[in-house]
Amino acid sequence: MAEQILFYLFAVIAIISALSAVTRKNPVVSAVWLVSCMCSLAVIYVLLEAYFLAAVQVIVYAGAVLMLFVFVIMLLNLRTGIIGQFRNLGLKFMGLVLTVIILRQFYTAFKGTSLILGNAGGLEPGFGEARAVGELLFTRYVYPLELISILLLVAIVGALVLAGKESS
């Protein structure tokens, strides 16, 4: 029961934060709302017994990714004058209509599906902990792991090529 209450509480916080994040004028405020959204998702991850991922969510998303956002916003010194507003009203309305349609689509898809997956015997002990994640990561998922290392290399090189100091 406590699980249910916590879930509802943080689901509501996540939705409110997400809505605020995409509607605020000032990107810094948006970023802070997004942090709140990510952290409430981390709580839900804990409820779902994804302990390691909850930690990563806080450290990587709330900690690194959004810090980087805030850092760039500050670096560019965005003043209100050059901060973009919404697009015109027509597009806003279209966005709203589209949102409702897509959401309805999702809802009917979920409703028409029996979502009983094979989890009769409960979760194994240690499910979602760092050990279980690590074991899989270095056995079955070793190929994607190697690939991700190249992807991160691309990101580093890319950031340097694009934003690094001009060397003439």
Partner: peptide
């Protein structure tokens, strides 16, 4: 793996476009 390969390609090409 498809997804990771796709992203590796895409990120590299975004950077090349802006090179």
């Amino acid at each position: 793996v498809v997804f990771i390969g796709l992203e590796t390609m895409s990120l590299a090409v975004y950077i090349l476009v802006g090179s």
